[in-house]
Simulated scan of single mutants.
Amino acid sequence: MRMRFIKKLAVLAALVIPMQAFAEDPLKVGFVYVGPIGDHGWSYQHDQGRLALEEHFGDKVQTTYVENVNEGADAERTIRRLAQAGNDVIFTTSFGFMNPTARVAKEFPEKTFLHATGYKRSDNLGTYLSKTFEGRYVTGIAAGQVTETNKLGYIASFPIPEVIRDINSTFLAARKVNPNVELKVVWVNTWFDPAKEADAANTLMDQGVDVIIQHTDSPAAMIAAEKRGVWAVGQASDMSHFGPTAHLLSVVDDWSPYYIETVQDVMDGTWESKDYWGGIKEGDIVIASISDRLTDEQRAKVDETIEAIRTGELHPFTGPLKDQSGKLRLEEGETMTHEQLAGMDWYVEGMTATLPK
């Protein structure tokens, strides 16, 4: 009798211990980055969000990341490996990861996938984006006020909607405070290549540009601007320490709130696929380290713009708005929807640059 009782206890223990271990298993969360986490830009900021996630949840989560992933077949293999390795939630953080993410999400319907800057969704695949165009509008207000040559320069990565709408937002804001502004654009066809970014910055400065704005991820443009005594704007992270004199402001992407909220929803079983856009109001876009070289009047205009966007009083894309050909795109008082913003493939009226074919 005693031996049978001990054996029953042993069987119960064998059942209970694995169940307890299972209950205590952390949620595994994977991240895929297009650049290195040391780029001081886009991938760096996503990784800061990952670290904030770990700090917030402690041993309730286990995170991993893969950096320098090429957009295409490499991305699909990497995402699939993360799913096969047991990651419950996978964040893919570049526009070119969209189709690979969608394909792998179909293969693993029990897992949750989130893709940054894309538009394809399914039951287990959501999309998310920061409203960088809000930060670019603030950039344009500042740049339009400080330029002395009336020539601003924009180092652009790829001609995708995210980049095009940020160029447009910068230009619209700059023209609001300075009708004589011209915005020159150099396309470098890369997200991260310090040598190309520095060359693009120098090319623009050779053309008389005295404010450099970038949609690439290294601080090379800021460093080049510092050497030549012109203004520059930081991308994704606070780049002020790379150009203490040149730095006008930085448009910082803070992914921490979104990552924490999303993982909490998955843990609670309340997550649903959606298209998330977060900006200045949500704390996902932060205007950092505004230069103290601005006059009181210039700084006041920048602060007023930030506050107007935060309260919803100002939307960067509000009609009437025409495109480069003169076609009316937005009626008087109309604001652009997320769907329209997500598909932007045209320059606004007044832009003299030409979009790549």
Rank of each mutant, 00 (worst) to 15 (best):
L172G: 09
T354R: 13
Y128F: 15
I285A: 10
A173F: 06
A173N: 05
R4A: 14
W277G: 04
D345K: 08
V266D: 03
D193I: 07
E76C: 07
I155F: 04
N99Y: 03
R175K: 15
T190S: 14
H247Q: 04
I17Q: 02
V34Y: 00
Q20C: 15
F192S: 12
L328D: 07
V252Q: 09
Y259E: 03
I290E: 11
Q145A: 11
L172N: 10
D268A: 13
K111Q: 15
A102L: 13
G278M: 03
V11G: 04
R4Q: 09
D47V: 01
G343L: 01
A23V: 14
R4W: 09
G86P: 11
T112A: 03
I79R: 06
M19Y: 07
S157C: 09
V32W: 01
I212P: 02
E110R: 04
F5M: 13
A198N: 02
T190E: 05
V211Y: 02
W42R: 11
E349K: 03
E304L: 05
L314E: 00
V89K: 12
K176I: 03
Q264K: 15
I160A: 11
G326N: 07
G135H: 06
A52M: 03
E55T: 10
A220C: 11
F242V: 09
P36G: 12
